[in-house]
């Protein structure tokens, strides 16, 4: 494992016991993703993109195989250790934004830093800078339901990136957005990727994401069908 290998999976399989009939979602996936990659996991529905993303992030456990993130083996971690690891190393962007509706934009972005016990002054500084970065400087006191889909996804991006994790995992981040907003957000994420050198891994069907990705991993029937790095 090279020093720059941030995500490493080894023979990952995942079997769901759906209605008594086992369904193989992943079948021996080996993958290595390095620092600064802007990667898209693509493939038809049911190919295992989201399952792989969930397993990489520790949100779900593989039936077999191993996952290392930043050199740490996820399968040996307890529930609390996994929570701490996700908090400190992974930022999530979801298709449905998944913001906490009772918290304001500022509080949503601040939340992970509160879990990390970052000082108040530092939290405020970073939140202000991040909201500025995603173009929501004047929206700090709004609640998520008062924002458009694109604005909510920007908040989700800010929340994912504010604690400066090594990896950003995005599950169909543009699926609920119009193409203009989606393109704007992708440009922003691409810019942040270059600026911060964070890993971005997308699960997507969106051609705009595929166009911007520096690496395209195609899954089919739970296996890596192709792995293409753009020049």
């Amino acid at each position: 494992m090279a020093n720059t290998d941030v995500i490493v999976t080894e023979k990952i399989t995942k079997v769901y016991a759906g209605n008594g009939v086992p369904v193989e979602a992943l079948r021996g996936v080996d993958l290595t993703i390095q620092q600064g990659e802007f990667t898209a996991l693509v493939g038809p529905s049911g190919s295992g993109k989201t399952t792989l993303l969930n397993i990489i992030s520790g949100l779900d456990a593989p039936t077999d195989g191993k996952v290392w993130l930043s050199g740490k083996l996820l399968s040996g971690m307890s529930g609390n250790e996994l929570s701490d690891f996700r908090r400190d190393n992974i930022g999530f962007i979801f298709q449905a934004y998944n913001l906490i509706p009772v918290l304001t934009v500022e509080e949503n972005v601040e939340y992970i830093m509160l879990l990390q016990r970052v000082s108040k002054a530092e939290r405020h500084r970073r939140v202000a800078a991040m909201l500025e970065e995603v173009g929501l400087a004047g929206f700090a006191d709004r609640n998520p339901p008062q924002l458009s889909g694109g604005q909510q996804q920007r908040v989700a991006i800010a929340r994912a990136m504010v604690s400066e994790p090594a990896i950003i995992l995005a599950d169909e981040p543009t699926a609920n957005l119009d193409s203009r907003t989606g393109a704007d957000l992708l440009d922003m994420m691409s810019h942040l990727n270059v600026q911060t050198n964070m890993i971005f891994v997308f699960s997507t069907h969106d051609p705009m994401v595929m166009e911007r990705a520096t690496r395209l991993i195609t899954l089919k029937d739970g296996q890596v069908e192709s792995d293409e790095t753009k020049g």
Partner: peptide
């Protein structure tokens, strides 16, 4: 349920 899932995903501990 989904909200608790998100809270856990972003690093909230089960105890919290």
């Amino acid at each position: 349920t989904s909200e608790y899932g998100v809270l856990k995903a972003v690093g909230t501990k089960p105890g919290q």
